[in-house]
Design a protein around this nucleic acid. Sequence first.
DNA 1: AATCGGATTGCACAAACGTGCACGGACGGC
DNA 2: GCCGTCCGTGCACGTTTGTGCAATCCGATT
Lengths: 333, 333
Amino acid sequence: MTTTNGGPRRVPAEVEQTHGNRSRDALRAAQMYYLQDLTMDAIARELRTSRSTVSRLLSMARETGLVQIQVNNPSERAPALEQQISRRFGVEAHVVPVADSVSDSEVLDRVAIQAARTIGPLVDSNAIIGVAWGSTLSAVSHHLTRKQTHDSTIVQLNGAGNTQTTGITYASEILRRFGQAYGARVEQFPVPAFFDHAATKTAMWEERSVRRILDLQGRMTMAIFGVGSIGAGIPSHVYSGGYLDRADLDTLESEEVVGDVATMFFRADGSYSDILLNERSTGPDLDDLRRVRRRICVVSGESKINGLRGALAAGLATDLILDEGSARRLVHT
Amino acid sequence: MTTTNGGPRRVPAEVEQTHGNRSRDALRAAQMYYLQDLTMDAIARELRTSRSTVSRLLSMARETGLVQIQVNNPSERAPALEQQISRRFGVEAHVVPVADSVSDSEVLDRVAIQAARTIGPLVDSNAIIGVAWGSTLSAVSHHLTRKQTHDSTIVQLNGAGNTQTTGITYASEILRRFGQAYGARVEQFPVPAFFDHAATKTAMWEERSVRRILDLQGRMTMAIFGVGSIGAGIPSHVYSGGYLDRADLDTLESEEVVGDVATMFFRADGSYSDILLNERSTGPDLDDLRRVRRRICVVSGESKINGLRGALAAGLATDLILDEGSARRLVHT
DNA sequence: AATCGGATTGCACAAACGTGCACGGACGGC
DNA sequence: GCCGTCCGTGCACGTTTGTGCAATCCGATT
């Protein structure tokens, strides 16, 4: 029992204490609210505080991962869409329900929230998690729920520098959020997205600082990425953000590239071995990527469908999280 | 779903549909509410229904186990009480936070709710779960959350008949609820709680119908029980419900019995091997009980503390769920 | 065809909840 | 010691949610 009697809050002991009390209260409140179905009002009385404080304790408990809410659609009857996708493409599908009427940006946001909550339970201690960057991953990173792990590492999948901005704060912001959410070390990959000359890449790849990252990547237990798509709709970050020049884009087109994962490109049939630009890209070799045990692909918006098809054909993902509209287009054509 | 054949249950694809829609909607709603943080109002619009329906869909989703809410107090800093109990008694302790001011019956209720939710995640497919009876278990059985499993069995731990009532509806009601919650078969144990003569028990124990139950009990993967306590406070069901006569009670006292689990008695030091009444009791041999992998003991109210001490000394439980007041008394004396 | 009963819906109201705001104590720099 | 800053609190308000009730739907029975 650690309540002060009625009067003002004394606690001459340390900040430790105060903090401890707060988080202990959060746990108590969470148990009473979620496990015993008391109202916040009742909890407030037992905790000798105000209802608003209880409300805040509870949101803290949720945010810090003290409370975890899972939604199962267990084997019994996974919605038809997910089953079809699973069968046809050999991935575990998580379809995010979204009515057709909502705007693209809202779809992204909602896919991101659900992706973050789906990923959470999959993160283990001692994990090495590769994370790409891009608008999708950025959105996801904003909604991660905290989960304490030991000895986990977040490693950047591909360089982010480009000719106009360093792009690094953008990517590192994403990584930082992941690291913070899971209490993990963060390893950035301080190279441009693309080298101008393949030879430079070859040279850099021999540098020990780079090899350290490559080594980490080689030992990834999980990778999280979106897809870029060429063609219909809005071009993704990579195609419009100053990473590639006109000539590069033309080359891609003539090579029938449909999209990319972590700035490594592929065709509609899933082939990628002889695409020139990949020689200069800093993304992970896709053969290597495919050896990672858990590879989570997050996709929002139907404009990405072409890229997604290619990525699936290439077998890049084990898990696919996408909005309902895209899911439907994926199977119905 | 063990309905009598020829019942009103038709399922001409029509109901299938409707029912399917409803449960699919519940899943969608749950995802949108718990995974995407939409308000019920917004969900109602996307589902083209009213907000109240969404509210009901969500409570259905919770009740049927579609949504699972866990509260972790992970290794980090398990509350001091739980750690102390774990260390001193070698059980995993789950302390239910309850202010001192609330009434005994409310304590029981809240312990029961939290126990039910704690047990839920531990139930697996192919489980054989032994369940005792008594006021504690009855309370727990009222709050179980549904969880679909395959090939699980609920087996009654000890007979429930007595000289005045058959006591069977009471016990079977508890079992039925467990079975329903986990989609499990229910195996009753149709014998009295105590035989009048030990010899009758010996004879009955050779009957094949009884052996079938004993065999199941021998293969239990989990056992759930409360404790009875002799001495302070209100006597538990067993001691007041017409199961034992005056002579029995006197004998127990002279043998220094402090409590029971599933009508098998023990002393404060945990010994039980030479207690006469156990020869006539239909509860599981405590040596056998101790071989069960997971043995969950639910205790509410400080009057049970004596019995609980004995049960812990006898090593009957692997997991202990109890209210905060009892937990405190357990360690502080 | 008429009717019955159970299940499901939306409405309306009350209860429960989240959050901007202002207050007050604790801490640290000056 | 004094003041600015930060953090946690309770209050008040608007929003969100649960639920009793009556209306309605749908299949089943007579």
